[in-house]
Nucleic acid binder design. Sequence first.
DNA 1: CAAACGTTGTAAATCGATTGGAGGGCACCA
DNA 2: TGGTGCCCTCCAATCGATTTACAACGTTTG
Lengths: 334, 334
Amino acid sequence: MATTRLSDVAARAGVSVKTVSNVINDYPHITSRTRAKVEAAITALNYKPNVSARSLRKGRSDFIALAIPEMASPYFAELGAAISRAAKKRGITVLIDQTEGEAGGEQLVLDGMRGQLIDGIIFSPITTAPAKIDLADTAKPLVLLGERHAGGTLDHVAVDSVQASFDATMHLISIGRRRIAAIGVGGGAGTGVVRRKGYRKALKAAGLAHDPALELAGTGYHREDGAASMRELLALPEPPDAVFCFNDLLALGALRTLAEAGLKVPADVAVVGFDDIEDGRFHSPSLTTISPDKEWLAENAVGLLLERIAGSGEAARRDLTVPYTLQIRESTSG
Amino acid sequence: MATTRLSDVAARAGVSVKTVSNVINDYPHITSRTRAKVEAAITALNYKPNVSARSLRKGRSDFIALAIPEMASPYFAELGAAISRAAKKRGITVLIDQTEGEAGGEQLVLDGMRGQLIDGIIFSPITTAPAKIDLADTAKPLVLLGERHAGGTLDHVAVDSVQASFDATMHLISIGRRRIAAIGVGGGAGTGVVRRKGYRKALKAAGLAHDPALELAGTGYHREDGAASMRELLALPEPPDAVFCFNDLLALGALRTLAEAGLKVPADVAVVGFDDIEDGRFHSPSLTTISPDKEWLAENAVGLLLERIAGSGEAARRDLTVPYTLQIRESTSG
DNA sequence: CAAACGTTGTAAATCGATTGGAGGGCACCA
DNA sequence: TGGTGCCCTCCAATCGATTTACAACGTTTG
């Protein structure tokens, strides 16, 4: 229980504090005998350097923050898990911040929250306008996830949403659908806009008419929003024969509504999602979806942030594009 | 960018450092005028106390850790979200630790990990034997989630799993099922054992024979495990007419298998889960399940831990029982 | 044999916030 | 005007690790 200090280790190993510090911080000029002695003492005493003291002195804590709208949302939970793992591999710890999708919470992230403890932030905004984020003087390195916007100045990691949405829509077209709806066009932080762009582009490429009645904004990106939007679509005089949902939760909600209505998927209505959460893989019917490589995303977001933290600062801004695949499952190929 | 210090605030407000500290730490004997001046300076400079320095000095960081098997698992994601919220309300921050269900990871939690930064731990073990946990000298207050075991010495918050499982099984019996399987009896850290106890108790109470072939251990608590176990059950010469799955993920996996087999739920097989994750509420059919009050759980786990942290120490061990309800949905009442 | 080198010890300062004690200044009351 | 509180300042020490500068020691090498 008595907290062991560096000096305790030094005493135990019969060396000076300086030497122990040298060992811990991988300094050159240390005999392997000394190093062994010190390491033995460290494990014997189960010594763990005091994070507060170290961070206070070094100005680095090896903590980074991940700011996401909500961790109970499967996509963010999976992302958080991947980022935590990626960080842990590099010896750093991730603090997860739920912004609750509120502007206030996100603003808090942008201000130097958490009193200089964290070394940097991976931020997945949802309400804050991109332009505002760029202006924020965070004092800490910041990597953005999610849709990019022109003229940004921050490092960025994201899927090419336009292309992915184009692919998803083209897939629906390729299986013979002609009346394709989109759910989620009003989505946060530009997501809706960008994915709609890909969707419209595909319709145009296929020479299909664009019907505004088939573009549903909804109020959020959850299952219930998808369910509600789908109900609206079914109430249309001429309901769609396919739906592209801008994330998997919306799609799962839509599937629920379709099941309640007694419609067959994909026979009556085909459904495509976006995110590839595990939930969709086990659903009946399983969900066709855009599958971003989350491990890649996590690795690179963390890597990018750590480079920023290590680097003196003025390197050029970088934009990484996350690889993705279209996972074709039962919801479009009965 | 220049990190503002306490002394900067003092200078700006025209008072001494001590006074600013007094204001921040809510000391008595401060004129409202002075307080106002200081607070104005704080907001003007956007001052945030340096967590490292404060924690070093005070020996408290207002950080607690939540150690869970994996945050990508919906139940834990929802729990983590609830606990984060509960903690934030009290001004403290939650670090989430994924033990990955590995003994090593859990052991790390038990050792005083994170170098004295955290004030306490909320621990949801899965592989570590309960007895071992009790013995661990964590040096930090620890609250356990999950199944309790006799003779424990640590604070504990959990659902009465035996009773809940009894209720779940009785519900299946009450709708006329007679051949009721259980999936997950081999589950981690005592969960399987305790829930099986309630399951068997219900069978016995109803005078139903207990068939060992209907108790599936499986290898984990994920969808794929549930799907695999269900396949085994269907391969039986005399398959069950109902299944009680020890968590919702298992149940969702089982539902998937049933759908693939072309069986109707609940007509052919009724299914009950445990946890009430959002996923099950939107599934078709929606999942009947034991619904623990997660908000209550979060509030009380955090509250209990904070009391421990604040208290000098020797208060008696406490055991809190989380309220739950049986949510009857389509998977048992078509 | 002496200079050079490599390894470790000593001593002291630093990071920023907190805290205790001694004392100064002020207002208010008698 | 003298006295009593109350509010606040000043000074110094502390938390634990890191880091700098320099000294001391032993070994190797020219």
